[in-house]
Amino acid sequence: MILKVENLNKSFGGILASRNLDLQVEEHEVHAIVGPNGGGKTTLMAQLSGLSKPDSGKILFKDRNITPLSTHKRVHIGLASSFQITSIIQSMTMLDNILLAVQSLQGHSYKFWAPVSGDAGMRETALNVLENVGLGRQADTVAGKSSHGEQRQLEIAMALALEPDLLLLDEPTSGMSKEESGEMVRLLKKMKGEKTILLIEHDLDAVFALADTTSVLVDGRILATGTAEQIRSNPKVQQAYLGEETA
């Protein structure tokens, strides 16, 4: 077990975005989280990445309590995230965006003299990452000027470049066209088995194509966890979530 969340609580004013939330992610699995809008999925991710602090509860990563750790420290023990709202550096090229991640992996950046552009090794590493996600030819495109789909790919590539042991993906296909999201699913499938991925996804077809395990998050609570079959046939889930879609 690579990640264990115990009794997580987080409220915004009167809204309980996480309530007594428990979750476990096994090594090398793709674990999907589905649930209705406003169910607390992004809030859960924010607490896992450290950008948001839980009111109470515990997060164990590789058997270590990381609840008090800040975001940047979590990255360096192998936890990387990509966001539902695209968070790339718009004014930089795709390559420069990835270079930031590569730079972060190589220790501290209190280096004031040597230009980053002169570092061939870093450049090659970054180009490899871009090629991996199918952005090899857009390396020198300014990120903000590329298409929405490409920006989403870059969003994920930045997390991938951190070579994490656990990858947190919040709706990688958000806002994508049918083809674009098909492309994304293919990309994620390539990583299946190698990487541990915790994935939030609205598109159930994508979820059932990718996930080994699926958890349903409703009203800040995990309603059920299991294989695609178990989830599909779970009456509680059908009532609370899937039912709405098929009805």
């Binding site: 950008l51 940047h72 990255v75 968070s87 790339i88 550096i89 930031l100 972060s104 992996l105 930045m158």
Partner: peptide, 16 residues
Amino acid sequence: IGCKHNEKRMQALGFD
């Protein structure tokens, strides 16, 4: 420069 444009992302990339 990264911090100017998106500080949260820079943290998520592992920068203090």
